[in-house]
Design a protein around this nucleic acid. Structure first.
Lengths: 136, 136
DNA sequence: TTTTAAATCGTAACCATTACGATATCCGTC
DNA sequence: GACGGATATCGTAATGGTTACGATTTAAAA
């Protein structure tokens, strides 16, 4: 997913195009890592003083529903990043300092499937945390 | 970890023995799966009407610090279970319905280590979610 | 039994998130 | 370009999980 794909998707789905939506998507396109609602609020507040948290969350959810953003929960706070949706299934290393990610192509489900006869597997989560080379 | 080990650990570390602490540990010993603070509050409220959430959380944190309980975050809410601490490192399948778990002995870190030269790996999370045979 | 540090209560505060009526804005249509 | 209606945003209050704290009670050592 990139900025243009996201903007086109918004348009195709019939959602209105607003400056704030463009800026939100640009934020995630530039940041390239997991960011929180308040990270986004701080960024947008410079250009739009007093922007409502309703706007922040409504759009985060919209973009998430459209698979423009993906999310994960870290320390009790939701974090969002541009979706890697069109690539094949993979997981992430996430830097505890800067939030940037590195893809992990190996999926552990490939190794444990046979052990779950009788169970219904619905989802899984595999994430590795630490410091990236820049932050180390 | 079992109930007696936990009670002894509490004593050895110099913490006071109270009925509520005993009942909290018994709750987790019986439940054998991930439970929330409010699950515990509901259970204890029967015997101790008006029990404070301060007591609930203070003891959950104490037991977590003593490695009597382990925790994970599901849907933005912390869940606790009796620790599997004395067994070797492993992960969990967690039933989305009843919270009970099944050990997964395979650790994905065994497969991906070489790919992280230059990174500092601090922790990882691998959990599988779904329905256990009973709930399916 | 006395003492005292620790545990609990009752309640308020905190933080991330959600909700909602009033207002403003986008955008298809005339 | 103006109009009209659906959608987006604002301002703010409410919610849910968690944390905090002074006052009171209790476990257990002396």
């Amino acid at each position: 997913m990139n900025l243009n794909e996201a903007l086109n998707l918004l348009k195709d789905e019939g959602y209105k195009f607003t400056d704030k939506r463009k800026d939100i998507l640009e934020f995630f396109a530039e940041e390239d890592g997991y960011r929180t609602a308040s990270d986004l609020w701080e960024k947008l507040s410079v250009k739009y003083p007093g922007i409502s948290y309703d706007t922040i969350y409504r759009n985060l959810h919209l973009f998430h529903d459209l698979h423009i953003l993906e999310s994960t929960e870290l320390d009790g706070e939701k974090h969002f990043r541009f979706s890697c949706g069109h690539e094949h299934h993979h997981h992430h290393f996430i830097c505890n300092n800067c939030g940037k990610t590195k893809s992990i192509e190996t999926c552990p489900m490939d190794f444990i499937q046979p052990k779950f006869q009788g169970y219904m597997i619905e989802s899984h989560k595999f994430e590795v945390y630490g410091l990236c080379p820049v932050c180390k």
